[in-house]
Design a protein around this nucleic acid. Structure first.
Lengths: 324, 324
DNA sequence: TTATAACGTGTGATCGTTTTCATCTATAGT
DNA sequence: ACTATAGATGAAAACGATCACACGTTATAA
């Protein structure tokens, strides 16, 4: 409630002197400054964010846009962003939903990190054109005010397929992701290229949407036509878990009849029986790098697009097939 | 970039007329309004949030404060809050970390929902004294500007203990929560009262902190002194999962040697083998109710403190003990 | 001693809105 | 034809901060 004006009055100085004192300017006598600071504390003074950012044209807040809070909510990723930002004096807010997009043009935030399927690229470009700084984590977008920090999806998908092949599998399914998802598109493309290198592979795609029910549905499809053991690359772990759930109610065993590999190494997979093979990456690093790049953009420094490396996590969900 | 002033100039009217037109006031001719709206669209006008909230003294944003983003990140709870808020024209931001607390006195948000262990009650009361509206989900705090929406911890803990007793258990451990946690305190109190009702119960408490490693450590303790089957009430599921992890590496079996019940019904428990018995509640409802209460506080309507009901989810992690 | 710089402080414009109040026009009532 | 009234618009004062600039003082150099 107390404003700079109240402090000025009580200290018997002008508001500019108060402002200088509170901002640690050397222009003010130590003595005066001390008095002002004391009064400010006494009055529980806190600067009004709106007034300050109206004048300074910056808020020191970064917005992170997510599709939703449920499902695989990127805890570690957010922590990575948060740590990096707060070490640079920025605050982070997490938002979701179409309405929250307005924070950008309204100048509520100094920059945006986007991992939101529903945030259209056209809209992002409009914001970038208006001078707003953005880091995208879920698409490719070339613009001077936009930087990309993406996963190495293609090498991840290649690792997965190679693993299956190495284990002797020649009958391979892939469960795709939602239409329009960048990660899904990249992964499936890499899968197609990988399997195309072998002439003896029986390859088939089943539709998916990155959620558990899609995995269940795919499992149903696969078991319906089951003849010999098959390998399945679920383009994310969530769907792999869905398959586990469905298969648990059938006679088919994971790692014996149906061999499964996922992508993301979400926490849940550490508790599956048998352990799900998957593709891993450091969520925390992904977040930290994104934040760094965004801060560079804001500081008008050059930031190169970057990709986060992924590794294979073997698991008993993929067993050996004796090549015959 | 375009401001109300630019629109005014281009439309040949004053800024006040533009403001009225854009806010749908009836004071302006339909014709003029239409022209202004058209120009605003053409210029990609978006009101400046700082300027608006400086003048209006409200932001239409609600802040949700969490201890961190990792671990059990309340996805459904946030969704519940978000849905309720957006139906009333509010936006939600999720924040974490000590620094983010300043959003309240800085008037960045119109109200706060607190589920943050590190947010001290003294600080909350200071903010409430300054007129800010707050809903707490993790403590009891009586203040005209603060409302509580809590879990029915005591009945949950009682359900858990009764379940163990009903199954014939008389040797019972409780793994506590972090010191100062309201939920933990309430639960452990109820446990003590429950076991005190029986003279033949051998009851013991082991320290915990709501994280997996604490569960592992507790499991180590318990197995070290193992003689006869015991029942363990982990004050949250996370620690129960920790126990599972540790026990998996030993000869002791969950549901046979060590009987476990948790609290929270987190998603992970749906995938444990055997299924973990636990205490369930609707996260979504918890969030929705909190949001409703906060909006009432903001509207200066009376809001009663409320508790969310909990139910028992049986599971094979707790087996029968033949009473001898 | 005087010119000048350095220093501390105050004045006032500004950021982009909202909103009260005044002003102006047109219409209606007499 | 003249006033009363309603309706549309504009002028200007906030909101609470920052900051360029101007203004006195005092210390320093010529």
């Amino acid at each position: 409630m107390a404003s700079i004006k109240d402090i000025a009055k009580q200290a018997g100085v002008s508001i500019s002197t108060v402002s200088y004192a509170l901002n640690g300017s050397t222009k003010v006598t130590e003595e005066t400054a001390a008095k002002i600071v004391a009064i400010a504390k006494e009055l529980n003074y806190v600067p009004n964010a709106a007034a300050r950012s109206l004048k300074k044209r910056e808020t020191n807040i970064i917005g992170v846009f997510l599709t939703n809070y449920g499902g695989a909510f990127y805890g570690q990723l957010l922590q990575g962003i948060q740590d990096t930002l707060s070490s640079k004096g920025y605050e982070m807010i997490v938002c979701s939903g179409k309405e929250s997009h307005r924070f950008i043009p309204e100048r509520m935030i100094d920059g945006a990190i986007v991992l939101d399927y529903y945030f259209s690229s056209a809209e992002l470009i409009r914001h970038a054109d208006a001078g707003h700084k953005i880091v995208v984590m879920d698409r490719e977008l070339t613009h001077p005010n936009i930087n990309q920090v993406l996963l190495h999806n293609t090498s991840g998908a290649t690792l997965a397929i190679d693993y299956l092949i190495e284990k002797g599998h020649r009958k391979i399914y892939a469960i795709t992701g939602p239409e329009g998802s960048y990660d899904a598109t990249q992964r499936i493309e890499a899968v197609r290229q990988s399997v195309a290198r072998y002439s003896d592979i029986e390859y088939q795609e089943l539709p998916g949407d990155f959620n558990k029910p899609a995995g269940e549905k795919a499992a149903e499809q696969i078991t319906k036509n089951f003849t010999t053991p098959v390998a399945v690359f679920c383009l994310n772990d969530e769907m792999a878990i869905g398959m586990y759930n469905y298969l648990a109610k059938t006679k088919y065993e994971v790692g014996k009849d149906i061999h499964i590999i996922g992508f993301d190494n979400i926490e849940l997979t550490h508790y599956t029986q048998p352990r799900l093979a998957t593709i891993d990456y450091s969520e925390r690093k992904w977040g930290a790098v994104s934040a760094e790049h965004l801060l560079k953009l804001i500081a008008n420094e050059k930031a190169e697009n970057e990709r986060i490396y992924v590794t294979l996590i073997p698991g008993e969900s993929v067993g050996n097939i004796s090549s015959n």
